[in-house]
Design a protein around this nucleic acid. Sequence first.
DNA 1: GCAATAGCGTGCAATACTGTGCAGAACAGT
DNA 2: ACTGTTCTGCACAGTATTGCACGCTATTGC
Lengths: 243, 243
Amino acid sequence: MLSAERRTLILQKLAATGSVQVSYLAAELQVDPVTIRRDLHRLESAGYLRRVHGGAILRDSAGASPPPSGLAQRIAAAAARLIPAGSVVFLGPGNFTAEIIPSLGNEKQLTIITNALDVAWRAARTQQHTLYLVGGEVGKDYGIYGQLEQQFNLLVDWVIIEAAGLSAESGLTHDHLRYANLARTLLRQSAKTIVLLPPDRVGQVSALHSAPAEQVDLLITGREASNAPLWDLSEAGVRIVLT
Amino acid sequence: MLSAERRTLILQKLAATGSVQVSYLAAELQVDPVTIRRDLHRLESAGYLRRVHGGAILRDSAGASPPPSGLAQRIAAAAARLIPAGSVVFLGPGNFTAEIIPSLGNEKQLTIITNALDVAWRAARTQQHTLYLVGGEVGKDYGIYGQLEQQFNLLVDWVIIEAAGLSAESGLTHDHLRYANLARTLLRQSAKTIVLLPPDRVGQVSALHSAPAEQVDLLITGREASNAPLWDLSEAGVRIVLT
DNA sequence: GCAATAGCGTGCAATACTGTGCAGAACAGT
DNA sequence: ACTGTTCTGCACAGTATTGCACGCTATTGC
């Protein structure tokens, strides 16, 4: 491998995840840690990143977003494992979905459609996927709730969204009207639907309903989720992945 | 084998894999490494690739956004000073326009419409402006070239874009068709237009024309720009800001 | 506060790569 | 056939990159 190539890979990894570790890169790229350190030193001199003990972080991440929680990484990693290379996926807004991008690794190439600015930014910086973004007003949660149907012919293999609640009786529910509308539009298509949910929201019901539980193909949540609602969902035909 | 043939093969290999190594090519093509080096040198001069130690890589595989140069910050700061609080501005793709966001400071609130993912991301993170984003496919330069007119009623006070050239006779010119089309659409509106240009592109002409110089209200460039073309542009009614 | 651990920079030697001058070979035009 | 030009390979000296060893420093857990 060319040294310049290696430095490009380091920058891509950094762009995708926000930070890199010397030890991880050394193992991944099969070079001595001291070589990685020299690379990082060089890239810092060129202004591409900021060197910190143990690795490097993005140059402009002064007051950046907090590091992802372990839960988000676990759920996102589980989702990433399920998606085959080459799929067309829709990613909704949220911390869990955004964390999927760095979980995908360097090889798996997808076509990603999203209405979340943070997801789009992470995906774009990897230069690895084909990326489509919904237009419209950008909200404080980085979600963009535009006229989806006008902009794309939605023929996606997987729809991956978060929700405020999922129960067998009340189905998929949300806190915000625009999010509920988005979910309803997306699930009308015949794609496979994956819902990412914090474990404490399994079986819960929120204000705005979008779809019955039967339309959810797969629920990914934490293993702390209580069993009774999971059982009911499973009865309703929802596959469950605990992580 | 003809030398031109060999260079074509080198470019093919490079396009296929993203990088080539001198030693590999020398063995593969059965010529001396020195010959390969001379080929690469030539191809680099012609702009086909970027030479690195041990081989060559694609010209635009920077991986991450390059650090802002002093020039970008100077030009962006000049533009930021000109925009009054509360304005509705369109920001096109590019390093200069992206640098405007941090130059705006913490108080000035704008309504920003953009088709550049990096601009949008920076603006969104400030939580300071009202932000609209054009939808569509995200390109390698983070530009999104969708159906602008279908998505927004463009009633902006300022259109701020970059270009590949601006001269009094040939007007505003660009390197990429989609960018030229964008500029043409934007400038059809009656907004005030600001063009950000590296000083060495003042008076230059590139392949694709979008608008006559008269439609440009303001040119912001570096003070290194040569005087004759600036004078012509000023005659054509373009206000000039040197920084 | 302190010890264990992991990470840091630097000097050094081995290796690989680089540019350049030179001479011979291939080639095009006369 | 002759001649000037371009391309190619070789030799050589200089430079870049890498891994290892060493002593030093930051971080972590108790």
